[in-house]
């Protein structure tokens, strides 16, 4: 893709050198000549390959690649070279050379910023192809930091940080949530060294509906993905064999979040305030039992019940109950909790 306009941040003030270089290459001209980049929106970790398409000429593009990162951190140039084959250029030979792939390699960028590279194909002393590609300084989509890290529809969710390139843009406003898209506005100038995103204060996204969200920049490019789950009151562990429930002090069941197949946590009033964590390990090979560990971060009373669903006969199932009393912070380690089944 040549001059993928959508990757160009609209509010990004380009360096004068890059602006001038890009202005010198009309996108329509470049597209007409069929330069295509793979991947179209690479990161600095990607090996970039450009596909050239030509008609009626017998040029080969295997004379080398020269990558020149700019000192201004926001732009660079890449030149790949070729030459016209001597002798008659038959139609068959020209057709065989119509599409060629040239490995440009990794295109280095400065910290935090997305750099634009002007890519030129030079043969027989003249510039034949010219195009451009933006290179991200991080592999996109990246990881976004959320509080809570695994939110549900009853949580007020905060966006703590986003890929560094945006943390380094001045005057970024609050993200805008629309449907399942979170758009992060950007400021006008990259800043180095990088200040804390929003001064280190997480942005409040509010309570989000269940679904899979995409964090995007104003051009629509994905910065990251995250999910918001429906709230749960029963924690299923070990592929559903065990169900865990906590009765909270004010009555009703505590909300739960799974951290995997072995563990999860419960909260009482606020999704960001973890109160109890449980893990169940399969130690049947040691003593024939599953081991239950309950870690409490509270001195409020609770009743935690683990049900072994594999043991159920009708409505009766094997259970273990662990009770925390008011005013006492207490853990439980139960190494003889449940047995049965093959280890």
């Amino acid at each position: 893709m040549v001059y993928k306009r959508s990757v160009l941040p609209r509010s990004w003030t380009m360096s004068a050198a890059l602006a001038g270089a890009l202005a010198a290459v009309p996108p329509a001209w470049a597209q007409q000549h069929g330069l295509t980049f793979d991947p179209p929106s690479p990161s600095s970790d990607d090996v970039v390959v450009v596909t050239v398409q030509q008609q009626g000429v017998c040029r080969v593009w295997n004379d080398g690649v020269q990558v020149m990162p700019s000192t201004d951190a926001y732009s660079g140039t890449v030149k790949f070279s070729g030459h016209t084959l001597p002798g008659p250029c038959t139609a068959g030979l020209a057709e065989a050379l119509a599409t060629q792939r040239v490995v440009l390699g990794r295109l280095p960028t400065s910290r935090f910023v997305r750099a634009g590279f002007v890519v030129s194909g030079i043969a027989d002393g003249m510039t034949v192809f010219e195009g451009g590609v933006y290179v991200n300084s991080f592999p996109v989509p990246a990881v976004v930091q959320l509080t809570p890290a695994l939110p549900s529809t009853v949580d007020e969710t905060f966006l703590g940080s986003i890929p560094l390139v945006y943390a380094c843009m001045a005057s970024a406003g609050p993200p805008v949530v629309s449907g399942f898209t979170v758009t992060v506005p950007m400021g006008s100038l990259p800043i180095d060294p990088c200040p804390p995103f929003n001064g280190g204060i997480p942005f409040d996204l509010g309570v989000l509906a269940a679904g899979s969200y995409e964090v995007v920049d104003p051009a629509g490019d994905a910065l990251g993905f995250f999910d918001v789950a429906a709230p749960a009151s029963v924690l299923s562990l070990h592929q559903g064999r065990f169900g865990v429930q906590v009765l909270r002090p004010s009555g009703g069941t505590a909300a739960t979040v799974a951290l995997g197949e072995l563990s999860g946590y419960f909260w009482f009033y606020n999704g960001s305030d973890i109160e109890i964590l449980i893990k169940i390990l399969d130690r049947r090979a040691v003593n024939g039992h599953f081991w239950v560990f309950v870690a409490s971060l509270t001195d409020q009373p609770f009743t935690l019940t683990v049900t072994d669903r594999s043991s159920c006969a009708g409505t009766k199932c094997a259970t273990r109950v662990y009770t925390g009393v008011a005013g006492v912070n207490r853990n439980f380690i139960d190494t003889a909790a449940f047995s049965g089944g093959a280890p």
Partner: peptide, 9 residues
């Protein structure tokens, strides 16, 4: 492993 602004394991 960070669980948010307030907690980690």
């Amino acid at each position: 492993v960070t669980l948010g602004e307030n907690a980690a394991y």
